[in-house]
């Protein structure tokens, strides 16, 4: 399995650390109700098909990447950095 890091180019899977679904980017606000936090931390769409998840180029540029991927075929459809632009982020 190979991911194309937007900064480093195509690299073997072993350079990356995987953390889970990209919903982790949508952090509820400090005032969000407990249900929102439960959903954020635990519940997952977990599709058999195209999903977005988070990978960290730990042995490369240390970018966190949002990867669009098929969980059935392992096809990689897109890779982008999570903090690529200045408008990203949940805490202003």
């Amino acid at each position: 399995m190979r991911l194309t890091c937007p900064l480093c180019g195509p690299r073997d899977r072993r350079e990356f650390y995987y953390s889970g679904a990209a919903v982790a980017l949508d952090r509820p606000g400090a005032e969000a109700p407990p249900e929102a936090w439960d959903d954020h931390l635990h519940n997952r769409d977990n599709p058999a098909g195209v999903t977005q998840d988070l990978w960290y180029h730990e042995q490369g540029c240390c970018s966190w990447l949002k990867v669009t991927r098929n969980t059935v075929t392992h096809e990689i459809l897109a890779v982008e950095t999570v903090g690529g632009d200045s408008t990203a982020g949940g805490v202003a």
Binding site: M1, D12, R13, A48, T51, D53, T71
Partner: peptide, 13 residues
């Protein structure tokens, strides 16, 4: 293998 998958197969690492 540490990535979400339904493929019932893995990779070399």
């Amino acid at each position: 293998d540490f990535y979400a998958s339904y493929a019932a197969r893995g990779n070399l690492p």
